[in-house]
Amino acid sequence: MHSWQPTATIETLRARAGILKKIHDFFYERGVLQVETPLLSHATVSDPYIDSMEVYFKKIGSLQETICYLQTSPEYAMKRLLAAESGAIYQVTKSFRQGEVGQLHNPEFTMLEWYRLDYDHHQLMDEMAELLCLIFNINSIDRMSYRHIFLKYLNTDPLISDCRELINCAKENNLQLNTYDSQKEENNKNFWLDVLFSHCIEPQLGLEKPIFIFDFPAAKAALAKIRDETPPVASRFEVYFKGIELANGFHELQDAKEQLRRFENDLMLRKQYQLRKVPIDQHLIAALTKGLPDCAGVALGIDRLVLLALGKKSIKEVISFSFEVA
């Protein structure tokens, strides 16, 4: 017989509903507008490390099929609302990521995303700290730059080290890597930063209380502003609690030309890695061209938030039906 029971207990689902109510109250009290944006769209993210799920739309009576994508984050659509002068907005929505399944991943997951006008990433971290303190019932949150966290745990400067130094650092930390990969990625600095961060730093982050990591290397800017310092850094942050990545935020890039250039660079990398070609979201580029207000935005994984708040081990324990039995 097929198992039909939910993967979360009803008690957990009650606690989850309580957390969601706190979140909605938090934004309602602050006058942040709740919005909804499409899950299904004609364009999708170009980031070579995020894969979208394709679905086919066919108008009844037509033989023509159109490729559409389940959104991996509501970011592009929310930025179009901001460009249309929505003011501060938030939403709690489903997002989909191709292939991501594991203890801390479900291909369909719930995301909280919000945007604040005239905030930079530090001001948004301040607000997020208030939300996290409320949900986790704690008093404060740590904050450290990407550069300092590398210096603290690995005694290596991620901004100025070259591949050779990062590879040596991995060796010194007894990190065993598939030989084929270490040879192939010998000159890919981003790869080595990811390896070191996710294996040697992340498991130690936020063991006592959550920690913000901010100011990423420019190559990891994604959709964040890059500040012209020496060396340049991206106004991006992430949040970790008990070794688990919880959120990612930006002081948002406003420059349409620069955004288009980054998308085109993503497409070039996709081609180089032999990944599927995706269309550039021209609606977003048009909105940025019209003008995105100065703002900061962040996306937070609700399932992981609930998991951490309730002390659970696996995503399936905090969602009604995990992918395997969905």
Binding site: D47, Y49, I50, G99, E100, V101, G102, Q103, H105, T179, N190, F191, D194, V195, F197, S198, H199, E202, K220, A222, E238, E245, N248, A299
Partner: peptide, 24 residues
């Protein structure tokens, strides 16, 4: 692995939100 036979004990999926996916 490296010429020696091995038996798998665990396979953990590690994926930063924005970054390379790994299997430990």
């Amino acid at each position: 692995v490296d010429g020696d036979p091995c038996t798998i004990l665990e396979n953990e999926f590690v994926k930063p939100g924005k970054g390379q996916a790994f299997n430990r």
